[in-house]
Computed example of a mutant assay.
Amino acid sequence: MKTALITGASSGIGTAFAQELAMRQINLILVARSQDKLYQLAEQLQHQAPIKVEVIVQDLTEQQAAKQIYDIVEEKEISVDFLINNAGFGDYGEFAQRELPRQVEMIQLNIVALVELTHLFLLKMQQRGAGNIINVASIAGFLPLPYLSVYAATKAFVLSFSEALWAENQGTDINILALCPGPTDSNFFKVADFPEGFSYKDNDVLTSAKEVVKDALEALKKKKSNIVSGGLSNQFIVNSSRFLPRELLVNLIEKRFRD
């Protein structure tokens, strides 16, 4: 049986990936810092499907966290066929007014840990001649976002990085995908400290995490470099810079995201 390693597995898109892959009878390695949630999810999935589930409790904002995860996997002699770099968070507000350590933690998690895990496991995949990597970016990676400036910049990095690796590995059996969801039904807005009245809290505009995951796995199967999930409105957003001057566009976004 194949094995998938999922970071940020304790909620949202990460949990949805775990549930979908368990249904496809793929063994799982679940990574997050929420120990109770991980073990509860692992128990649930093992009751629902004939799979093995390993749990690694790890805070990926810590230095050397990625290497520690890799070493645990190596010690257990598990080959990772799917690496899903899902862990990440945002932080809403005017950059200069937000806490600097929080911004640095975001870069560590959204970029550094993702790059480290990708490097460690991609090399093993290349040695085996097969593998799959999904890096969770965002439609925020296509545009600058005032009040989410660092978050959007990290997702732009993930998008560019993933597409470059996709090109490097073309012609092989290694598939690399940048998953770019729009607003998704998850705890993102709560963790990012959005104001209570922000309209994305209206469930009518949120895509389900399950739908995002199915879009991702279908795009991976088709060997695409990226997938924008969440419908036509998100396609319009990511392509808007083709039709509007960037200064005008970022001013419009600023008004939309202003508290």
Rank of each mutant, 00 (worst) to 15 (best):
I56Q: 10
L60E: 02
S10F: 05
Y39A: 00
F236Q: 09
L123D: 07
V213Y: 01
L165D: 00
I84R: 07
L120Y: 11
I26P: 04
Q68L: 12
S160Y: 13
E163F: 00
A156W: 00
L217E: 03
A152D: 07
I78K: 14
Q58W: 06
S11T: 05
F198Y: 10
K224L: 10
E196V: 15
R246P: 06
Q25D: 12
L244Y: 06
S233H: 09
A18P: 02
I69A: 03
K76T: 14
G93K: 05
I107A: 07
A66N: 12
P195D: 04
E168R: 02
P50H: 02
G12C: 06
K201Y: 13
N251D: 13
V31R: 12
P50C: 11
D71K: 08
R258V: 05
N226K: 14
P181N: 06
R258Q: 13
D193V: 08
Y200K: 08
S162L: 01
D91K: 06
P183Y: 11
K224S: 07
G12K: 04
L100Y: 08
I69R: 02
I6W: 04
V136W: 01
I139P: 00
D36C: 08
V104S: 11
Q35F: 13
Q108G: 13
A156Y: 01
A49T: 04
R256A: 10
T15Q: 12
V115I: 12
V238D: 15
G131R: 03
K221D: 15
V213G: 04
K201P: 08
K52R: 09
G131K: 04
N169A: 01
Q64E: 08
A96L: 13
L120V: 02
G14W: 02
S149A: 07
A192Y: 06
L100Q: 06
R258E: 12
E99A: 14
S34N: 09
I174Q: 00
S34Y: 08
E54H: 10
I56K: 11
N85Y: 13
I56F: 11
S186T: 15
S199L: 07
N86R: 09
A130P: 02
Q58T: 12
Q48Y: 08
K223T: 05
N251A: 11
F89M: 11
F157Q: 00
S138T: 03
N86E: 08
K201A: 04
F142N: 00
L100P: 14
P146R: 01
I29C: 12
Q68V: 14
S208N: 06
Q40H: 14
N135F: 01
L120M: 11
I13S: 04
Q170C: 01
A137R: 06
F194D: 05
G131F: 02
P181T: 01
V80G: 12
E74L: 10
Q103P: 09
W166R: 03
Q40K: 14
H47L: 15
P144M: 02
M1N: 09
A9V: 05
N187P: 07
A219D: 11
K224N: 07
P144H: 01
F243Q: 10
P101W: 03
N169S: 00
N175Q: 11
N132I: 06
G12M: 04
E99V: 10
M125I: 15
Q64P: 03
V250K: 15
I111R: 14
I84S: 10
V158M: 00
G88E: 06
I174P: 00
P245H: 13
N135T: 08
